[in-house]
Amino acid sequence: MNEEQRLIKACLNGDGTAFEAIYRRFAAKMLAVCHRYAHDKDQAKDLLQEGFINVFESLSKFKGEGSFEGWIRRIMVLTALEHYRKNTRERESYGGTVENLYEEFHPVSADDIYSQMNFKELISMIQELSPAYKMVFNLYVFEGMKHEEIAQKLSISVGTSKSNLADARRILQKKIEKVMLDPK
């Protein structure tokens, strides 16, 4: 029995310290995940809090198939999705600037991004996306979901999902280009 299994068993027996141990072990990584889905730091904390409560309440459902970290991460993503579905008003009142997405781009490579951009900058770029673009981009790029699955989860059409992803990429490309060309 590894450490994670021992902690899960202790949690199921009502051991309070085991809950805290799980939190300490995964909170930082999960907060990074939550930051991608949130529009600011406070919302990310709220998502993490809600997500961990869901994790603790669902511990008995963890069958040990796959990694525990992956399971917690899925719950965090599902929590963010639930929050996205509930906050219709937030989505509709999004006041992001409409940019010209069809200007010419200077293609950037993954290496360029890796070498010239830091984590905080990229997270900020994602957070600035509209909720719909952000959700599709995150689910496609980081969670590895297909458009059909994204469309089902967000209750949109596959075409909308593809279109949102393309738009999100163009916006991010433009932002990266801008940062690269004008590092200040």
Partner: peptide, 21 residues
């Protein structure tokens, strides 16, 4: 622009990173 390159760049920078709560 190359979609895959953009996605890869984001994944390489962001994935696996932590933010201390």
């Amino acid at each position: 622009f190359n979609d895959d390159e953009l996605d890869k760049g984001f994944r390489r920078v962001i994935e696996g990173k932590s933010i201390e709560p």
